[in-house]
Amino acid sequence: MTPSRAAVSKPPIDPYAAPADFGPWRFLHRLNPLSKIAAPVPAMALLLFTRDVMTPLVFCLVALALLVIGAHLHARTLLLLLLAVPAAVGVMSVSFGIWADPAASADPTVIVEAGPLHLTVGGWLIGLATALRLAAIVLLALIGGLTSTGPDLVRSLVQQLRVPYRLGYTALAAFRFVPRFGHELEVIRQAHRVRGISDGRGPIAWLVRTAGYVVPLLAGAIRHAERVALAMDSRAFGAHPTRTERYSIAFRARDWFFIVAFWAATAVVVIVFAS
């Protein structure tokens, strides 16, 4: 709201940043966003039904390999992928393993015991499989997620899948709301603190406080959305069934190749490990 907003808090993520090209080696950035979604979808669906450890593990490794080789990642993201994901899988395997049905587990050997809780080898393996499936699905989704931009995805949805552009570009305009509402929420919090409703700890006080932020935030949001809509209408938004696309997002042979190769690999993994 204040004119100094832009200077003080620049939005941390620029959802509109131009799609970067990092050379032929980082090939994922050169693929159509849709192919990066279509390729892993069968694998993600299959993962919902697997029960073994090897299948999700292989998919995890494949996705990680693709990301490390084919994507230009910041050091922090890379570290997160290579360290935090395995750590999370480890933690989840134990916590899922504790709650696994002992009757269903193959090996009742107890690994650790703490009071009423005990972790058996069989239970841990079930937990590990579940954790790996979750990790594999997330990593497969990241193949497209870390290498496509919002505007490109919208463009290819409109250009290849014939999604109505009114829908796509409205969603794109809504990206702009995020940093604005973040800033507004911060100001509302400050204002409410000044009025003295920060008193009180615990979940109930938190709920009451948060509910109090909703009305002013919503009132501001609706007014803002109305203004944006008027401004877009004034610039002929929705005038014709289509609009000029200055950037055409190609769907090339390499996109087909990527999809087919990924599907074939998926089939091989399933045949070799799941049966």
């Binding site: 509109y16 131009a18 702009r176 803002h224 203004r227 014709h240 000029t244």
Partner: peptide, 30 residues
């Protein structure tokens, strides 16, 4: 053509060039 009071509520794209092109694109110009 209209210009409104709040500059923030008139921005819909990610770069200045895309922003200015938004209207003409809607008009289906080449």
């Amino acid at each position: 053509a209209m210009v409104f009071q709040d500059p923030d509520s008139q921005m819909v794209t990610g770069t200045l060039l895309d922003e200015v092109a938004f209207g003409p694109e809607n008009l289906l110009l080449d």
